[in-house]
């Protein structure tokens, strides 16, 4: 058998090893070796992992310049949400004061739960739609609406009616997926680096659209508490120090404008609600440039006083606004 194999394939010989061939081979293999050694030298490290350059983002300050001639807060009462929203914002100088041509505006309603509008657990779709419209009229290039919901965000945006209201008004719902969070320096007392939905870093203006709700741990969910929805990660840990966390969040995100939906008031069983008997009619929309004053004002809807809500005084101490809203320039009006 061996002889047969030999006859078949054994006798092909190498071409003569001339100097040229030999040198060529030696150079080739040496080049490979040098490449390996050089590559090894280049990637050598006494650290186990390549240090990734994760730069910590910081929030922009989204506020516009103060105008002492205009009120800080405008309360509009009535029956039609859009009219109230327009009235309240108009009193502060109109949307054109806050949104410029070509701006990308990000709206942050409270869309925490898979609940219907009537249940008062989310910002009303009427207000969100109205504000999208107002931004578009003021020349906003894009109006994005986002929230980091607690229930499935797609269900929340659908059931709350906000998804539809935003689309109809010419805005766009942006839901943050796993990849959409960027590490952000919150610079707070308890909140240091946290993942934040990237839309907040991509927007020119941010408008807070909270709702008035009862909350079992911190008494109420209002404007400052609404910033829970900017961060991802394990934010359920914030409850261990909820008042300081709320103040840290409010200090980190300074919005252009806040428009509070007080048309429906969830008075009990917050922040989820679910029972229409827990929802009271508020017939009010408030636009404000001072979140502390706004939250303080809204305590009235929930039969609370500032001494029952520690984060208000803490926020004032941090210079975020005034608890005593009556001492500020606040206007109230009634529409329709």
């Amino acid at each position: 058998m061996a002889t047969r194999r030999k006859a078949e394939r054994n006798d092909v010989i190498e071409p003569p090893l001339t100097r040229r061939v030999f040198l060529g081979r030696v150079l080739g293999v040496s080049g490979l070796a040098a490449g390996l050694a050089g590559g090894g030298y280049l990637v050598y490290s006494d650290r186990p992992m390549r240090q990734s350059l994760v730069e910590l983002k910081k929030f922009k300050d989204f506020r516009v310049a103060a105008d002492p001639l205009r009120p800080v807060m405008a309360v509009a009462r009535g029956a039609r949400t859009e009219a109230m929203a327009r009235e309240a914002v108009e009193k502060l100088g109109g949307m054109a004061r806050f949104v410029g041509r070509g701006d990308r505006v990000l709206l942050k309603p409270n869309v925490g739960w898979d609940r219907q509008p009537e249940q008062g657990a989310n910002t009303g779709p009427e207000l969100v739609g109205a504000v999208v419209k107002m931004c578009r009229e003021a020349g906003a290039k894009e109006v994005w609406v986002t929230d980091v919901s607690l229930n499935d965000p797609r269900r929340c945006f659908a059931r709350s009616g906000i998804g539809q209201a935003v689309e109809e008004a010419g805005g766009k719902v942006r839901l943050a997926g796993r990849e959409d969070f960027v590490e952000t320096d919150m610079g707070g007392e308890v909140l240091k680096a946290w993942p934040v939905a990237r839309f907040f870093h991509e927007a020119d203006k941010v408008i807070n659209l909270p709702i008035v709700k009862h909350h079992s741990l911190c008494a109420c969910t209002l404007a400052m508490k609404n910033w829970y929805g900017v961060i991802g990660g394990q934010r359920n840990r914030l409850h261990q120090s909820i008042h300081r966390s709320i103040v840290d969040l409010a200090a980190a995100v300074r919005p252009t404008l806040t428009v509070m939906d007080a048309t429906r008031i969830l008075k009990r069983n917050g922040p989820t609600g679910g029972n229409l008997e827990d929802v009271a009619v508020g017939e009010t929309v408030i636009a404000s440039l001072d979140e502390v004053a706004l939250d303080s004002f809204c305590l009235g809807f929930l039969d609370l006083t500032p001494d029952r809500v520690p984060f208000l005084a803490m926020a004032e101490a941090r210079g975020l606004g005034r608890v005593a809203w009556r001492e500020l320039n606040v206007v109230e009006s009634r529409v329709g």
Partner: peptide, 21 residues
């Protein structure tokens, strides 16, 4: 997986390069 050749792993070249020859 880590984009580095960590510390003592550089000794692997002592095996790999002679293998070329």
């Amino acid at each position: 997986t880590s984009h580095t050749l960590y510390a003592g792993l550089v000794f692997s070249l002592v095996v790999l390069i002679p293998t070329l020859f």
